[in-house]
Design a protein around this nucleic acid. Sequence first.
DNA 1: AAAGACTCCAACCGCAATTTC
DNA 2: TGAAATTGCGGTTGGAGTCTT
Length: 266
Amino acid sequence: MDHQRKKEREREMGRAPCCDKANVKKGPWSPEEDIKLKDYIHKHGTGGNWISLPHKAGLKRCGKSCRLRWLNYLRPNIKHGEFSDEEDRIICTLYANIGSRWSIIAAQLPGRTDNDIKNYWNTKLKKKLMALLHIRKPAFMNHHDHQNPPLLIPSSPSSSLISSSSSMFNTDWSSTNPTLSFTPLDHEDPINYDYFPSFSFQGSCSSSTREIMKQQEEVIMGIQTNQNYICISDDSNSNFMGSDDGFGSTFGQTPLDHFYHIQDIN
DNA sequence: AAAGACTCCAACCGCAATTTC
DNA sequence: TGAAATTGCGGTTGGAGTCTT
């Protein structure tokens, strides 16, 4: 059955629920529920089947809910609390290069969950970055040569903005240039002409999973060997607004543009 | 002191990918 | 081989706590 027909059938029949919603508790977990889930998993493991686990564990919860609770909160070695500067750096660098692939980012931060990192990015780190970019907007906005966009001027001599001639990673970026695009939020209103930064890859990428995984590994290897910068391109000539997967399209071959030292973001 | 605005994060939802039968 | 079941992921939301006026 093709995808379209499957979707149509689901719409007609209603999507099959993953559990009996009427008999399933929702909302915050109680300490008693946490204990039940922990005890069960310590004694029996997950058994490779989250759907049947809640019933066996005596919980009136959806299997997905149990899985989420375990992975994000109850499993051993989960790290809660403040993110370190080093963690900030890794998150920023990875986000700049692979976008919102939180599970991959989380894999580089032991003890952190994808949900944690996603929340942290959305509530704090993104704002820090936006604030940094906003401070520097005038230099960029006054420039009209889109073919040769200006360098964003560092706020201080110690600020480490380096030029496109620098090499960020040992990785060959010739086909996977990471960029941060500045896309006008409102094309019609020059007064409120604000810019929204969006990260993306440039270059052509195969859609196959294996190819994507290979590129992700390259990105992560590059990040692990280069500790200090994230790349930001003010490729305002492009209308591309980074999609959340950032791998799907073919773009022009502009060189890497500018790099911010991570301390500028912290 | 109170009320509204804002922030943060745990949890939910829907979808795509993967596995099982 | 394909349908069904299950898992994993990322976006979004609800509500509790905090801040501001």
